[in-house]
């Protein structure tokens, strides 16, 4: 590794504190741009370490009903890619490393190089790309190198060992382990597949592994924190924002943060 990114430093810090990183996802522009920024600020104050700003997209095939509905609302309010970058800027200003989670077409349409440049200028730390695998990512890899951004690719229980190695090689910051075969959304039980997947990733890389899909409360966060480097929560926070507003987000974030202590 040639340099420490903000995300690398975060994982170094939480390792020293003997806890997992808490990653919180909220879509930009839900329910509106201003509120989405306030919700991000609130969840960071309540203990979220790393923010995923979602870029609302018309065809989110990896997302369950909660995030789909939020994206629909943001899009019908007229959210633009440039607004998402502004939300990322506000998020980064909280001091929490901020990545954008986005389906690939909006980045390609904006211009991969231009997107990377503007995200870096906004203080963003990288991208999570749910429908871009390293095999198709040559342009993004070059642009992220150029602008010092981290590349968070996903691995899944179905990934072969060869694909885990290939994905780990292409990733930086952390690796996003999708805990279940399925889409985003809260689940009653944490996945039995996740510990095995994390173990398999650790066999091929020293890059930290975050676990997402289905974590919705402090108890589940605690369970995942026992075997993963980061606990990723999305739909539950979106739902909390929808039903409980900014306070709802802050309350859940605090509960999750208590959960990720080991």
């Amino acid at each position: 590794m040639t340099r420490m990114s903000a995300i690398d430093e975060l994982f170094e810090k939480t390792r020293a504190e003997n806890r997992a990183v808490l990653v919180g996802y909220l879509p930009a522009g839900f329910p509106d741009v201003k509120t989405s920024i306030a919700a991000i600020e609130a969840m960071v104050s309540a203990g979220v370490d790393l923010v995923e700003v979602g870029l609302p997209y018309s065809d989110p095939v990896m997302d369950g009903p909660v995030i789909q509905a939020a994206a629909d609302q943001a899009l019908s309010n007229g959210i633009r890619t440039t607004d998402v970058l502004e939300v990322a800027r506000a998020s980064a200003a909280t001091g929490a490393p901020t990545v954008v989670m986005t389906y690939w077409n909006p980045v390609e349409r904006f211009g991969v190089e231009r997107f990377a440049a503007e995200l870096a200028a906004a203080g963003g730390a990288g991208l999570i790309t749910p429908d871009l695998v390293p095999d198709e990512a040559a342009e993004w890899i070059a642009a992220s190198e150029q602008h010092g951004l981290d590349r968070v690719f996903l691995v899944a229980p179905s990934s072969t060992d060869a694909r885990l190695a290939l994905t780990a090689d292409a990733s930086s910051g952390f690796i996003y382990a999708a805990a279940v075969m399925g889409v985003t959304g809260a689940r009653e039980q944490t996945s039995s597949l996740a510990p095995t997947l994390v173990e398999r990733v650790r066999a091929v890389t020293s890059t930290p592994v975050g676990v997402g899909l289905g974590v919705s409360n402090g108890e589940q966060a605690h369970e995942v924190a026992t075997f993963a480097d980061a606990v990723i929560v999305g739909s539950a926070l979106v739902k909390a924002l929808h039903t409980g507003g900014i306070d709802g987000v802050a309350t859940l974030a605090a509960e999750l943060r208590a959960g990720v202590e080991r």
């Binding site: 095999d135 996903l154 179905s158 990934s159």
Partner: peptide, 22 residues
């Protein structure tokens, strides 16, 4: 071999489906 017709095609899919597509 990787499903590209010139610059078109390929696989822009969640990783979970890549092994099943293989």
């Amino acid at each position: 071999a990787t499903g590209h017709f010139g610059r078109f095609g390929g696989r822009f899919m969640p990783e979970a489906l890549i092994a099943p597509l293989d």
